[in-house]
């Protein structure tokens, strides 16, 4: 009897894992088929070279570049905030702070990533933007800068926590070697510990980038809805995610060309994050072999 029970449990477990795989496959299939649909109406060359994205207007143009550009601009701003701050925090917690302090502060920092992103979005729109406008009078109400800065704060714990884990995983003997040679704390941190933990730190940054690219609410609320091919962070723009929200919540008819644009935008986004996650996976695997 036990073996039958075991067998049932095994089947249930198998079905659960099968289900998640099937759902993932289903998403990919739908994304791909709708995208195929889209490209039967719009040339792929236009998609990648056209510099305007106006599927919702009378004069429809289907260039993904403005959306990609908007997404990358916000992401770059976010990383410019999160990388230096996150890495500094990681080094501080690992090399300078005492263990009790680290044990308290690290989970507190991780709360930053647990705050609902819609809260961050309103924080950016109603607090950060007005604040920045005092210094930058020509900053528009919706802008990439404020969304990027706030998103940067949100992803700090991705970098600080994962980098601190990576630093902590560096064998203690290397720290001793560095101090034994007469290194200062700063030299030990940046000439020995950070290089030794570099692959883990790179993985943390890639995951943070991946998170920033896929982030939706902050940019939907604070960055605007005007697809623009620009590197100017002071104006409003639109990211891939914002566009998808905009269309999904509007009343475009099903199976119209407007409708299928969200799948083409969606698959572009998916390819970005898929590649980033795979790169981090490869680096992580290499890193695990290093000290064995």
């Amino acid at each position: 009897m036990v073996s039958v029970k075991e067998r049932i449990i095994e089947v249930i477990l198998f079905l659960c894992s099968l289900l998640t795989v099937l759902i993932t496959l289903g998403i990919i299939v739908i994304l791909a088929s709708e995208t195929f649909n889209f490209f039967s109406k719009v040339s792929i060359i236009e998609f990648f070279t056209e510099t305007e994205w106006t599927p919702l207007f009378a004069n429809k143009k289907f260039g993904i570049l403005p959306l990609v550009c908007g997404t990358l601009l916000v992401t770059v701003i976010a990383i410019l905030v999160a990388l230096p701050l996150g890495l500094t925090i990681a080094v501080y917690l690992n090399e300078y702070a005492n263990q009790k302090f680290t044990a308290v502060v690290k989970p507190l920092l991780e709360i930053l990533a647990a705050i609902p992103t819609v809260v961050y979005g309103f924080f950016a729109l109603t607090f950060v933007t007005p604040l920045l406008q005092r210094v930058l009078p020509n900053l528009s109400g919706f802008n990439a800068l404020s969304a990027g800065l706030v998103m940067g704060v949100m992803i700090i714990p991705y970098i600080s926590s994962l980098s601190e884990d990576a630093l902590r995983a560096v064998p203690k003997s290397l720290r001793e070697a560095a101090y034994g040679m007469g290194s200062t704390r700063l030299q030990t941190a940046f000439k020995v510990m950070v290089p030794a933990a570099s692959s883990g730190i790179i993985v943390s940054v890639i995951l943070a980038i991946s998170r920033a690219i896929g982030e939706t609410m902050i940019v939907a609320i604070a960055a605007g809805q005007e697809p623009k091919l620009t590197l100017n962070p002071l104006t409003s723009l639109e990211t891939i995610t914002t566009y998808i929200v905009q269309v999904s919540m509007g009343d475009v008819p099903r199976n119209s060309i407007e409708y299928s644009t969200i799948f083409s935008a969606g698959i572009t986004l998916f390819i970005f994050t898929f590649l980033l996650n795979n790169i981090s996976f490869v680096i992580k695997r290499k890193y695990h072999q290093k000290y064995e």
Binding site: E176, A177, M181, G182, T184, P195
Partner: peptide
Amino acid sequence: VDEHRKKIGMVFQKPNPFPK
């Protein structure tokens, strides 16, 4: 202390070269 340690070399139980 850092300057002092530069004058007193140390070799450890387990070889610990830097990953360089």
